[in-house]
Design a protein around this nucleic acid. Structure first.
Lengths: 339, 339
DNA sequence: GTTCATCTTGAAATCGATTTCAGTTTGAAT
DNA sequence: ATTCAAACTGAAATCGATTTCAAGATGAAC
């Protein structure tokens, strides 16, 4: 049923090699021959079989991407950046949604391993560094988003979690808060650690003693944030601000406050991270930390593709990008005397 | 550098054919041989080259999906449905984001054509029916979301746009509205037509004369809705309700109203379509039409995969699913005497 | 000890393109 | 007219797996 390159060759009265040359437009073909071949292609409605092409040429012009959750607007933006860069370089992208499950991260990694992709971009918070290094050493092209791996072959792009977390604390303390809750993401994720670290650093700098009862885990999702907030309210500990390690959890905080009749920002200030699309539609609008998500995706994709084509001469490999705090309604209230 | 099946064969002291048999676990292999082979695979860290496998077996266990916009939570949900179903049937999914551009829809269609995928699911509002039929007739397995195509080989799933649009009008009229704006999506999309049709049908049933000045185009996106709403306000025509053909445009309506100091729902009622995640976080919460998005994705994926494996004996092919109006804050206000 | 079905294995063909290598044409330069 | 490099083309090898075909081994039944 399918039309193959030899059918085109026969119809045009040339060899398959010549058809291939026309198809790939590189080497010498007489323009008259080229016309004949193109005519035959059009007549037969021929489409090149990419699987065969890939096998012979040992590449697929495809890169694989593993993310924890495609539905979060954070990764959706990153993916867009990757996709557009890849597209402009004639690469295709396969997205794998690990759905926040560690096992699925590994499963997809193994799937991508079978050379259906030329390289991959990993945003896999739960996968240990050594695992990634191991695969890279095996000869697979890998780039990483969201963490830093010490390895000459692995391009990385990540934000300084510690730095912006400290900024969040600075901001809250500047508004007169001293009892600040930290809502962490799930424990395996590097981001959880680093944001906590920044929070602690911030407290220290302002000489505010650390109170462990003000730290709760919210698993990076809305319901986790909601449950965590309820636990905090039940504990009856005193606090006037909540720093949620992402916007999803902040959403849960909003819900819990609404149910408990607590006003934001008058009674409790809230800050999130990610600048999800939703955050500016909330009432009040949510103060949050913005990362250059799209650019991060684009940069890492470009880096990986460069590496695949060895355009990169020991070029820059590690990218640490800055984030900015966006102050909105949820922290638009000064409490007590300013510091 | 890469380890191939013959390397494994040599190491295990058997032929490549035997290794292949072990790999695919089908036919007779002595358990002792199997062990030797598995040992060799483990020792060498062998990964099968799927490209070669696909070429020989003439399938890729992959389906392609083209959607107008991966960032919209509407399609994100559908994709999740597709992905999970595909995953459970051992298929992979390639997502193509046409970014609401007609040319990209076609471009991706041609890309997927080259047998990298076994079948495809199209949510391509701008692609004409005939084009889709043409490709299907060429022997490509195609399934369609969001419209109905009369063709024995093409599974379809779609919602009854006319029906729910009429329901929206019913709801608004029931609240006392008679001057109802319709905000349409871009003109090429079937959905735009059908939702307009339902709107007209609804007006007719309530003997409300159609006023063309109450229809504006908002291109299915937020800024389009915003601009359209501003045009309407500038025109100084009288209206008390807006039916936006999707939630994105409703978002723009909210923004325009906020800027103009118009209160929702007291001065203007708003209804959207899609039940985007954002819609219930707005103030006021947005009345909207919910579709079983996840299920739609899952059903159409299952149907396509069935067809690929010819499990389907002239089974059901066309699925028309029901949508429900979710009444929320944006229409929570009765004006004048009820009908 | 035959016989015959069932297991078990390997050699070689195959999937559909690309690419190397070598041979032929062409045309400009002498 | 001759020479030689560049332009053009095709035959055949190749990518790395699967699968067919045939042959050899095994073992149960008589």
């Amino acid at each position: 049923m399918d039309i193959k390159i030899v059918d085109v060759a026969n119809k045009a009265g040339v060899s398959p090699a010549t058809v291939s040359r026309v198809l790939n437009g590189n080497s010498y073909v007489k323009s008259k021959t080229r016309e004949k071949v193109n005519q035959a292609i059009a007549d037969l409605g021929y489409h090149r079989n990419d699987v065969a092409k890939n096998l012979r040429s040992q590449k697929s012009m495809t890169i694989g991407v593993i993310v924890p959750d495609v539905n979060s607007s954070y990764f959706a933006e990153i993916i867009k950046g990757i996709e557009n860069m890849a597209y402009s370089r004639k690469y295709r992208v396969i997205i794998c949604d690990a759905e926040n499950q560690k096992e699925k991260e590994l499963e997809y990694l193994n799937l991508l391993m079978s050379r259906t992709v030329d390289g991959m971009i990993l945003a896999t918070p739960a996968l240990p560094d050594e695992e990634i290094v191991r695969y890279s050493d095996k000869g697979y092209a890998i780039a990483v988003i969201g963490r830093h791996i010490e390895h000459a072959e692995i391009p990385c792009i990540y934000t300084d979690n510690v730095k912006f977390s400290k900024q969040v604390v600075d901001h809250l303390v500047g508004l007169g808060h001293r009892d600040i809750v930290f809502l962490s993401g799930y424990a395996e994720a590097v981001d959880s650690f680093e944001r906590l670290e920044g929070y602690l650093k911030g407290l220290k700098e302002h000489q505010i003693p650390f109170r462990p009862e003000l730290v709760e885990n919210g698993n990076f999702n809305e319901s986790g944030g909601y449950e965590a907030m309820k636990r905090l309210l039940d504990k009856k500990v005193k606090f006037t601000a909540v720093y949620a390690a992402n916007d999803e959890m902040a959403l849960g905080v909003y819900k819990a406050c609404r149910e408990a009749g607590i006003r934001i920002p008058e009674e409790i200030a809230v800050v999130g991270v990610d600048n999800n699309r939703i955050s500016k539609y909330l009432t009040p609008t949510l103060s949050t930390v913005n990362q250059p998500k799209y650019a991060m995706g684009a940069v890492i994709a470009e880096k990986l593709i460069d590496q695949l084509n060895e355009d990169a001469f020991s070029d820059k490999r590690v990218f640490k990008v800055d984030s900015e705090l966006i102050v909105r309604g949820s922290t638009d209230f000064r409490r007590g005397p300013a510091s």
